[in-house]
Simulated scan of single mutants.
Amino acid sequence: MTTPAQAPYVEVNGHPATEDDLRVAAFFPYGHFTAMQVRDGGVRGLDLHLARLDGANRELFGLPLDGGSVRGLVGHALEGAGVVDGSVRVHGLLPPGEGATTVMVTVRPPVRTAGAPQSLMSVPYARAVPHIKRPGEFGQTYYGRLAERAGFDGALLTAPGGVVTEGAFTNIGFWDGTSVVWPDAPALTGTTMALLQRGLGPAGSVRRPVTLEDLGAYRSAFVSNSQGIAAVHRIDDRPFDVDEALMGRLGKVYEDAPWDSV
């Protein structure tokens, strides 16, 4: 469930990125971002993305980040790239000596997870300040690559005591036969996760502590991120059923989420 490595079209504060712009972003990466899939100029859960950006900007820099301005910058970048569909990232940065947030928008070709069932390797790593989505996470990349070299599709991050938190680049949910269970642990609330929570409602989506020892209590599992939803068929050496009915229900909830124009 990763974005293909391809040079993006990049704008900074509404103009095509210069070498100096990219140099600043490379050498002063302290910041935050959100990733979204755009189709025909629309985004599912756009309000969630804008709220994430504003909240993170206030926490990191003490500055608001106006949602209307962000929408305009995303639309401008799509126009500059000559596309209406794309994988878009919006980064908030505050270079040294600057008093206003620098907004960098990157546009790549659209992607969607193939939906193939995933295998996950549990690893002993929990992100610092996990509720903020930010670039350059060494631990996530390190353990994700380690899992792939071991023959897995990705990594499952765990805190001390085997407490399940999130995937390296995904949220993880479990099915107990009645409700979707999201680990009640420090983690990023992904926009797809939030859309599923909205659509499933309080009876169909709950938060509960989950540990590696608890995994036998769940029939099925899945991961989600901005690229979509995929079943999990194995965590370490523990198999999970691929519940087609559950995946169909989750897929419908996600597909029913409205598109908002940027």
Rank of each mutant, 00 (worst) to 15 (best):
T3L: 14
P4K: 02
P4I: 12
Q6M: 13
V12Q: 04
N13Y: 05
H15A: 15
P16F: 10
A17M: 08
T18H: 01
R23S: 14
F27Y: 10
G31W: 03
H32E: 15
F33G: 01
T34L: 09
V38L: 08
D40C: 15
G42D: 12
R44L: 14
G45K: 11
L48R: 12
H49Y: 11
H49P: 00
R52I: 00
L60A: 15
L60H: 12
G62N: 10
G62Y: 09
L63K: 07
G68Y: 12
S69I: 11
V70T: 08
V70S: 05
L73I: 00
G75M: 07
H76Q: 12
G80R: 03
G82Q: 00
D85F: 09
L93K: 06
A100F: 11
M104G: 01
T106P: 04
V111D: 08
R112F: 14
A116Y: 09
Q118M: 15
L120R: 00
L120G: 00
M121L: 14
S122C: 12
P124Y: 13
R127V: 15
V129E: 07
R134V: 14
E137R: 07
Y143D: 05
G144M: 00
A147E: 01
F152E: 03
F152H: 06
G154I: 01
A155M: 02
L157H: 04
L157M: 11
T158F: 03
T158C: 12
G162Q: 11
E166A: 15
G167S: 08
A168I: 02
A168F: 04
W175I: 02
W175S: 06
D176I: 04
G177S: 08
T178N: 07
W182H: 03
P183W: 13
L188P: 05
T189V: 13
T191H: 02
L195R: 09
R198F: 07
G199A: 13
G204Y: 04
S205P: 00
V206M: 09
R207W: 14
L212S: 05
G216I: 13
Y218M: 08
S220R: 01
F222K: 00
S224I: 01
S226T: 04
I229P: 05
A230T: 03
I235F: 06
D236Q: 11
D237M: 03
R238C: 00
P239A: 12
F240C: 04
D243E: 09
L246F: 03
R249Q: 14
R249W: 04
V253R: 02
Y254K: 06
D256I: 01
D260I: 09
D260W: 02
D260H: 12
V262T: 09
